[in-house]
Structures are given as structure tokens and as C-alpha cells.
Nucleic acid binder design. Structure first.
Length: 445
DNA sequence: TCTGGGGTCCTAGGACCC
DNA sequence: TCTGGGGTCCTAGGACCC
């Protein structure tokens, strides 16, 4: 096996920069939903010591003082840019596995006759030319070593963003020595702490640790990771994207919610979103799990967290059915007098619509609601998602996320396209209140 | 005051079956 | 005192990933 891992550099920040050139070469951070945590940083922001994953409020002062640009997350933009990158990669390699929104494994087995470093440099240059997104590429004889190579390609300027460890034992040895065990793909915080307690600090230490012990302490996952570092592939490329087994829609709220109506509005919206997602994937769910939870960070408040799983009579992706089951679940779970901060639905036991078991009287995804649902999806697809919905889904604002720094959806909304002013200059629409304006605009249509 | 969201896989233990 | 053996299925929880 020879496999390359293509990983977009600081992906969310890079997406923001494509259409906002003033952000280039400047420190930028992107926040999670609700403007909660820092989840992406440009290199400049990393250099200024902004850590990953920390709460925004703790760093707000520093970010302002140092003039660091802040953006709320904009998944419509990132998702579309991701598609563009993956489409570009598919021009070069037939067999690829889209691993996450910003990562892709390429199967280079059988290309041993070409200079892989050279070839990957070309890929990197074309992806940048076509999409504006910079990527790094690591090559290895297993997925785990490709990951390792990628990490070093990013860190070491002299690699110019491409590092091949697939046929370079000396380099691989040095790479393993330089990498912390905890930075190996598959070794998280818990295990790296456990390993450090045994004096296993570097990736090389881990590779050379007694195999029986690794198997016993870290299960088959740990054993596989170790074998992969030794050069034995244990994790295959998933070229065919396997069907999802669950679909989850959940959110923390901008503020705490005490009344059942607020939770009703949020969960109704999640149910609509989840059902639409199922239909888009051609799947149906056998059951839905509804969960609500108070604010886990407020130790001073009474805590409650509960979920209920309810099966559908027949597997379903029908919005009305998901909606009514979800709302009946809420009634069961809700307790007055508590301050809820988060809710969600998890659609589970998913199967392909055509594989779903049917009953004497109905076939999943067929019947009288089928036309209604496809008309529904069609309208929302053309005019903007959420334009039409059901009466039970009130458009309440009590639970909305806080997003104070969101940029336009440059590539997926006509009314948010980048504006070209003076030659060579791009003026995005004002950032403040853009969502409020949008709702107005939508009503006009 | 303010702490994300969406996934997968594995394991242990209990319930249940013959 | 001694108390079978071999399974499957389900669930909760823990680990990991981005």
C-alpha cells in the first residue's frame, strides 16, 4: 500500500481568506457554534499563542487587543469549498477516500514508478490554483504513517508541504523519533498519558513497545496502530463511502430555556433538518433518540440530562412522522423548573430506503407522503432551505445560536456573492446583522 | 455572563436462549 | 461442600477522530 493524505491547511481560516483577501497573512481565528470555542487558527494566530479549543470569552480581550480577526463558523461556505477541493483531487487519482471535511486519502499504490513527491507537488499547486485552498500532503506505506508524514510536511518548511515517508526508512525513523506518541493518529489524550507513565513518550517508543502489552492495555485499536507504524497496513482505504449509521442534529442554545415551548421549537427544527438529511442520503431510520440537557458548566444549577429512544412503526424519513415522534419524546422528558441549554435528536438504525423492511400495509419512503416530501424538498432546495415548513415548527428565536461574526455564504447564496469593486478589490457585504437582513430578503421572494 | 457538533468502533456486562 | 456450557443480542460507556 502506498497512500497519501491531503490535508487542507487551517481549513476554515483558509476558506474565509479566499473571498476576504484582507485576511491573508493576518492572524485569523474561527469560532465554533454559539461563538463558543476557537476551533481554527491561522498560522499567525497560532504564533500569537491562541490555543485550540479554548473558550472564546477567555481570549476575547487578547484577540481584540492584538487585532486578530474573528469569524463565526460558516458551514455553508466550508462545505462547498470542501467539495471543490475533493473534486479537484479526483482529477488526479481515481481511488480516494474523503475522510473529513478537510482531509482526503489518495491511493497511490501502483504509482511507484513516478516520483511521488513531484506528483504530489503538482496536485498541491493545482488545488491551490483551482480553489484557493492551500494543502499539505504526506505519503506513507500505511494510513497512520501518511498521517505522520502529513504532520511533518506542515511543520517543516523545507518540505514545502509535501513529505514522502513511504520508501525512506531513515527519514521514517527520524520522523518517529521527533513525533510525540500522543500525536500519532489513534492515540488520544487518555492513552498518551497512560503511555507516558510507562516511559513511552515518542512514536518510536510506541512502535517498539511490547506488542502483547499494547494489545492488553489498548485493545485491538492500539494494536492496529502499532502495526501500522511498523509498516503493516491494518486500516484499508474506504473508497466506497459507507452509508451512515446515525444522523445527529443537536445544538447548544444561545441562552438557557426554561419553558417547554422553547424546546419544542428547537427540537421541531432539528426533526425537520434530520428528516431532510435522511431523504437526501436515501436512508430511512428505524428509531429516533431525543435528548435534552441542562448547562453542564453551571455546577451551581440543578443538573438534568435525559434521553429517550422511540421506534417508528415502520422505518421512516418522513418529516411529519419524525416531528411527531420527537415532540412526543419531549413531553416525556421535559421537567419544569430546569434551565435547559442543549437538545438534540439522533436518528438511528439507518438503512437504505430500498432495503428497509416493509409491512403488509406500507413501504418505507413510499405512499401518500412521498410526493409531499419531494415537493417540499424541491421548494426548499430552490428557494432557500427553511422557506416552507409545517405549522408545528414555529420560527422562534429563543434558542438560536449566537453568531456575531459570521461572514457571507459567498458560494451558495446569490444574495451573498462577493462584490467586485475597484479592480483587484473584493468588498464583502457588511458582516453585522447579516442573518436578520436575510430573513427579510427571503420573505420578499 | 460566555465552554461545539457530528461521527465511528470496541468492550464489558447483563439478559436471555437452549 | 458440591451448583453446566455455550451461545447471541443489546446497551452503556469509553476511547478515538475531525
Amino acid at each position: 500500500m502506498i497512500v497519501a493524505l491531503v490535508d487542507c491547511n487551517n481549513f476554515y481560516c483558509s476558506c474565509e481568506r479566499v473571498f476576504q483577501p484582507k485576511l491573508r497573512n493576518q492572524p485569523v481565528v474561527v469560532l465554533s457554534n454559539n461563538d463558543g470555542c476557537v476551533i481554527a487558527r491561522s498560522n499567525e494566530a497560532k504564533e500569537q499563542g491562541i490555543p485550540m479549543g479554548t473558550p472564546f470569552f477567555k481570549y476575547r480581550r487578547q484577540l481584540e487587543q492584538e487585532g486578530i480577526f474573528v469569524r463565526s463558523s460558516n458551514y455553508a461556505l466550508y462545505g462547498d469549498m470542501s467539495n471543490r477541493v475533493m473534486t479537484a483531487l479526483a482529477e488526479f487519482v481515481p481511488d480516494l477516500e474523503i475522510y473529513s471535511i478537510d482531509e482526503c486519502f489518495l491511493d497511490l499504490t501502483g504509482m511507484a514508478h513516478v516520483d511521488l513527491t513531484d506528483y504530489c507537488r503538482q496536485i498541491k499547486a493545482k488545488v491551490y490554483q483551482w480553489t484557493g485552498i492551500p494543502v499539505s500532503i504526506g505519503i506513507g506505506s500505511t494510513k497512520t504513517s501518511a498521517k505522520l508524514a502529513n504532520r511533518l510536511a506542515k511543520k517543516m518548511p523545507k518540505t514545502k508541504g509535501v513529505l514522502d515517508l513511504s520508501n525512506a526508512p531513515h527519514l521514517l525513523e527520524r520522523a518517529l523519533e521527533k513525533t510525540d506518541a500522543g500525536d500519532v493518529w489513534g492515540i488520544g489524550r487518555r492513552w498518551s498519558k497512560m503511555l507516558a507513565g510507562r516511559g513511552i513518550v515518542t512514536a518510536k517508543d510506541f512502535r517498539d513497545a511490547p506488542e502483547g502489552w499494547v494489545r492488553q492495555k489498548m485493545g485491538v485499536i492500539g494494536a492496529r496502530t502499532q502495526l501500522e507504524l511498523q509498516g503493516t497496513p491494518c486500516i484499508e482505504l474506504d473508497i466506497e463511502t459507507p452509508d451512515k449509521k446515525t444522523v445527529c442534529v443537536s445544538r447548544s442554545f444561545g441562552k438557557e430555556i426554561e419553558k417547554i415551548e422553547g424546546l419544542h421549537d428547537a427540537l421541531a427544527t432539528f426533526a425537520m433538518g434530520g428528516a431532510a438529511k435522511l431523504r437526501k442520503l436515501g436512508l430511512v431510520a428505524n428509531a429516533v433518540n431525543i435528548s435534552i440537557r441542562t448547562n453542564v458548566h453551571r455546577k451551581d444549577q440543578k443538573q438534568h440530562s435525559e434521553s429517550a429512544t422511540i421506534a417508528f412503526p415502520t422505518p421512516s424519513s418522513d418529516s411529519l412522522e419524525v416531528l411527531s415522534v420527537t415532540l412526543s419524546g419531549l413531553k416525556r422528558l421535559f421537567r419544569p423548573g430546569l434551565k435547559y441549554k442543549r437538545a438534540g435528536i439522533l436518528l438511528l438504525d439507518l438503512v437504505r430506503k430500498e432495503d428497509a423492511s416493509r409491512t403488509l400495509f406500507s413501504t418505507p419512503g413510499e405512499g401518500k407522503t412521498k410526493n409531499l416530501m419531494s415537493a417540499f424538498d424541491d421548494i426548499n432546495q430552490r428557494v432557500g432551505s427553511g422557506l416552507i415548513t409545517f405549522g408545528q415548527v414555529r420560527r422562534s428565536t429563543t434558542w438560536y445560536m449566537t453568531q456575531n461574526h459570521v461572514s457571507p455564504r459567498f458560494t451558495t447564496r446569490w444574495d451573498e456573492l462577493a462584490m467586485v469593486g475597484e479592480p483587484g478589490q473584493i468588498n464583502p457585504p457588511p458582516l453585522k446583522n447579516s442573518s436578520a437582513e436575510l430573513i427579510k430578503g427571503r420573505r420578499k421572494t
